[in-house]
Structures are given as C-alpha cells and as structure tokens.
Design a protein around this nucleic acid. Structure first.
Lengths: 218, 218
DNA sequence: GTAAAAAACGGGAAAAACACCTTAACAGTG
DNA sequence: CACTGTTAAGGTGTTTTTCCCGTTTTTTAC
C-alpha cells in the first residue's frame, strides 16, 4: 500500500511547515505546500493528485471556500479537509456545502488530525464531534424563521463586497458611495444580512465577516 | 556548547506540535509546551529554564501580554519571542513594552524564526524589518495629538472589560447596565478609547479588540 | 492636607444606524 | 401572458451612537 499523499494550503508558513513535519511523522507524504488557494490551483498536477487537501479557510488571494468550490468542479474526486481557527457554525456548513469532507480546528490534537485523514482516505468523510454538534444545533435551532438555514449561506458578490466595507470604519453612506449604490440599497443589504445571519447590528456583521474569512485582519 | 532550549506557548495544538518538530529540525531542544500562559507559569522549572520562550499573543486563560509581563517580574532573565498572527502596531509595541525581545508573525519563513531565535540567544534581542518599520511608523506618525503613543497602550481593567462587551451585539446602554455604570461613564470610556486608539467608531473598537487578543473569536 | 488628575456622571443635539413598508425594473418560468 | 423572485431604491420614523458642553466625586501626587 502506497503512502497517503497530502497537500497543504495555509498562508501561515510556520504552521504549514510544522504541520508538514507532523504529517511526515504520522507516516504520510507531503506532496505540495502553498500559501494561497490560487497557488494550489496552479500547482496541482493532474497526473499526481493528493489523497487529501488540508485546506485553511482564511487565506489571501483565494480563500478556502472559493478554492474548495473550485476544486469541486475541476477535480471532483479530490478530498478536502478544512482546517480552521474558528468553530463558527456558518463556516463549517459553508465549507461542507462547498465540498469539504471534514472540518477540524487548529487547536485540535495531532491524533484528531490523523483520525480525520484516515477517515477521509478510508471512508471518504470525517465527521468529528464538533461538526455533528454544530450541524445538529443548526437543525434544531430554528430561532425565528424556520428553515432559514438552507439559504443563509449563499452570499453573493455584492453582499461580500458590502460585508468587507461594513467591517471598516466607513459609515453606510460612504459605503453606498463607494459601491455606487443608493443608501437605501445598502440598508437593504444590511437588513437582509441581519436576518439571514441572525444578528442585530453592525458588530454582528464585523464578527461574521472575520470568522468567515471575508475580511482579513492585516 | 549546549543545545538551545525553547519553550512553546500556543493554544493551537497543531501549530505548536508542528513548530516543535520544526524547532527540533533546526537543531534546538523543545523544553516544554503549553496551551495557555497560565500553564506556562506553572510548568516553568527554576532549575531548568528555557533560553527562549516562543509566546503566542492570543491565548485563553492568560494571554501573551499578561504572561510576558508576569515573566518579566518573576523570571526577568527569560527571553520572550512574541509570535503573532497580526502585525498590528499596537500589539507589537505592547509586547515589546511588556518585555518581549522580538516579534515575528505566524506567516513568516522558518529561516526568519531561526534568525530570531539565534539573535535573541546571542544578542538578547531580535529586531526584524517588521518591528523596526512599525516602530518608526509609530514615532513619525503623530497624526492628531502628538505624543499619544506613550500612553495609548495602558488600558485598565474596566476599559478591557468595556472593550470585550463593545465587541458583542449589546448596545451601550446594555453594557452600562452590565457593568453597573451610568451610560455617561460608558460614553467616556468609548470616547477616550476613540482618541487613544485613533479610531472613529465602534467598528474600530471591535477590530482593535480582536487584533489585540482582548476578545477571542472562539 | 491640598492640588492635580482621573473616573463617574449628566443634558442636549446632531449624525448614524436601524426598522418597516412600498415601488419599479427585470429575468425566468409555467 | 401572468406569476414569482430578485435587485435597486424611495419614504418615514425610531433608536442608537457620537460629540459637544459641563459637574461632582474619587484617586493620586507632592
């Protein structure tokens, strides 16, 4: 039996480098490393694909969501294991819906990582307690409008753009000018996001944007 | 010559574990690992101290600032190398003022880490381009009120508490009730922070709190 | 012990954010 | 063609935030 081949995508070079060593020690092969999703899409070799892609969510250039979705269409057989700092419910669901086969946190144990990789190689998926817990929560927690969990994650380009600007010190009027839209339209974006994301005010927007890698802190 | 001994403090176990491997490969010894500042203070052995403590800023229980300050008084000879995700100017200055001997980012190159460790062991400090750049910026950038950079970092207990609450979806009135203070006092905290931190509104507060590890995004 | 500094508190007003409700244009669908 | 959904935008009013102006009380410093 051949060694399991892993690809690493994470912009934190120290983490990535260390992780590479850890993975080697666990008996796997590190096929390739990269700092952005874009880099991954360029480095992948059709004739020598990894068995598992360890994918960070927060990356510059092309984040984990986008990259996972891209892989889904271009390399549908590739297994993505999401690797994140946050256990945000929406982030988990978004990654899984974009095609990730599992989700683990950066503060988890190396053994958990090994279990996840083995699960994905053998069974195609890895559902940790974390993931199942959050999924159950999202199903039972129909606070307010039921069934909202189905479309709450599909943010379009403009909404993403708006979220980025809402996470700066601009006023909504300035955001409207910047996006060449009426302040009322911005109101609409804001209000619909409040409802979709189940938040009350702008602080909620900022927290969501950060946790979901829509804005990068430096 | 004996091997250089390193202590690791970071709550991201995967990063820490990987880092441990990397450090070993670089020819150093990993003396101890821990997930929180508190754990570090408990695990330190007077008779076998590390040469360098690699200290993350954002940790639960006791963050990097607090821990570095604690080490400064209890083990003044211990060398702390700060390890952070963000290159926030205030964070850098705060860590250095609390006694850190250097500051590197998690997305830096392993060779940069090695250089930093060697510098600290040999010369007692490591000033990277990043650090000197930011320090110069903070000196020349006297935008608004000059000399503010001296006291802008001393946030007291109440201000920290306020910042934590301001980073939630509570209104200021609710924050006031929660802190058993008049809304006017809260106004005062807010306005003085706006000035000290050179920000314009609540979004700025939230971003500052996150970048400086005052709030943890689980 | 007194002077200075800071923390806590307050009124009032302008700006911004939030809520709710309506309309127009347009695209896709049965 | 009517039906439905989505996007952009207007009207109006309330609440919250931000920014002035202060005073009183508590801490700190000399």
């Amino acid at each position: 039996m051949n060694k399991v081949k892993i690809a690493l995508a994470d912009d934190h070079v120290l983490l990535r480098n260390g992780l590479a060593g850890l993975i080697t020690n666990l008996g796997y092969t590190v096929l390739l490393e990269c700092s952005t999703g874009k880099e991954l899409t360029e480095k992948l070799d059709k004739n020598n694909l990894p068995d598992v892609v360890l994918m960070d969510i927060n990356m510059p250039e092309m984040d984990g969501y986008e990259t996972t979705a891209w892989l889904k269409t271009h390399y549908p057989l590739l297994n993505v294991l999401a690797l994140s700092m946050y256990d945000d419910e929406n982030a988990i669901i978004r990654m899984l819906r974009n095609g990730a086969r599992g989700y683990i946190m950066k503060d988890s144990d190396p053994l958990e990582l090994k279990r996840a990789i083995d699960d994905i190689v053998e069974k195609g998926v890895h559902y940790s307690e974390l993931v199942t817990g959050k999924l159950l929560h999202s199903i039972y927690n129909v606070n307010g409008n039921a069934g909202h969990s189905q479309q709450l994650l599909e943010l379009n380009e403009r909404e993403i753009e708006f979220l980025k600007l809402a996470s700066t010190e601009m006023t909504y009027r300035e955001i409207a000018e910047h996006m060449h839209l009426s302040p009322r339209t911005i109101d609409g974006y804001r209000d619909s996001l409040f409802e979709k994301l189940n938040i009350k005010n702008r602080v909620g927007l900022v927290l969501y944007a950060i946790k979901n890698g829509i804005v990068q802190l430096n």
